[in-house]
């Protein structure tokens, strides 16, 4: 994780990219160009892109080049579409993503950040930011990034701290803090929750998550994403033992039920 965050000055304007997808239609409003960044600090048991975990690999891309590439698809975006940065974890490369989004806005392109909400503590100095300032509990980089973000897709893995840690390897305190901050800033947010039978689908947990969501005022959508096994082959390819062996995708009914619970009392 430390490696992801410590980049040389030469890399400041560049993003470590895993891959691009020209056609995203469920990753933010409208049709979107998606840049998947390389590097993530979470180790979610159900991750379908474990190949994006490592902070090495991928390809370094100039932000302007990414936008040039994205603009090839501008004709498809209509009024709502634009670009989405997904991952991996975009917040680990917050300065470059902030640059990217600021330049996108200068070009009139709508921006969307798809994040797990997990980022390194703002007080950790990095080579590019030896004395980070903290604004509203967030580092200056992340504040700058959010200022250039039109929509956030925030994936809340679990509301319970201990179970979150067991599932993802990380704490959720910072993630929930970010969710509150997004609400204060009034940034349009879509909440996502992956439904894994036996891990994230019990009613008390869903109710607790719903209670938290009710305290937020910026939620446009709440989506339940059914766990699927389509990424499993990647674990095998990478030689990482798959922790959810034998877990079946949830039924359509349980997804609908979970959505109903999570949306209760929310304005979306």
């Amino acid at each position: 994780m430390k490696e992801c965050n410590s980049r040389t000055n030469a890399e400041a304007q560049r993003l470590r990219i895993h891959s691009f997808e020209s056609f995203g239609s469920v990753d933010g409003p409208g049709v979107r160009f998606i840049a998947f960044v390389q590097g993530c600090a979470m180790r979610c048991a159900y991750c379908h892109n474990p190949d994006t975990w490592s902070c090495h690999g991928g390809e370094l891309w100039e932000t302007a080049d990414i936008l040039d590439r994205a603009e090839r698809y501008r004709a498809y975006w209509g009024e709502k579409g634009g670009i989405t940065v997904s991952g991996g974890e975009a917040l680990l490369q917050a300065p470059a993503v902030a640059d990217l989004f600021e330049q996108a806005h200068a070009r009139g392109i709508n921006t969307c950040l798809d994040t797990s909400g997990f980022y390194p503590a703002p007080s950790d100095p990095t080579p590019t930011d030896p004395a980070p300032t903290v604004v509203g509990g967030l580092s200056a980089d992340i504040s700058r990034l959010l200022a250039a973000t039109d929509t956030v897709l925030l994936d809340i893995k679990h509301i319970d701290p201990a179970r979150h840690k067991a599932l993802t390897g990380q704490d959720n305190a910072g993630i929930l803090a970010l969710a509150r901050r997004l609400s204060e800033l009034g940034i349009k947010t879509w909440i996502r929750h992956v439904l894994v039978p036996g891990y994230t689908d019990d009613e008390p947990s869903l109710r607790a998550l719903n209670a938290f969501l009710r305290t937020l005022h910026n939620i446009e959508r709440i989506e339940v994403l059914p766990y699927h096994t389509m990424g499993k082959y990647k674990w095998q390819k990478l030689g990482i033992p798959y922790r959810l062996e034998g877990v079946e995708p949830p039924t359509a009914e349980s997804v609908a039920r979970a959505e109903q619970i999570l949306r209760e009392g929310c304005s979306c």
């Binding site: 239609s25 469920v26 409208g30 501008r74 004709a75 498809y76 989506e223």
Partner: peptide
């Protein structure tokens, strides 16, 4: 991959064809 509801899917398809 087109969207979550038929309405959303139709809108996405219109965007795709317009482009």
């Amino acid at each position: 991959t087109l969207g979550r509801t038929d309405e959303e899917r139709a809108n996405t398809l219109v965007n795709v064809m317009d482009g």
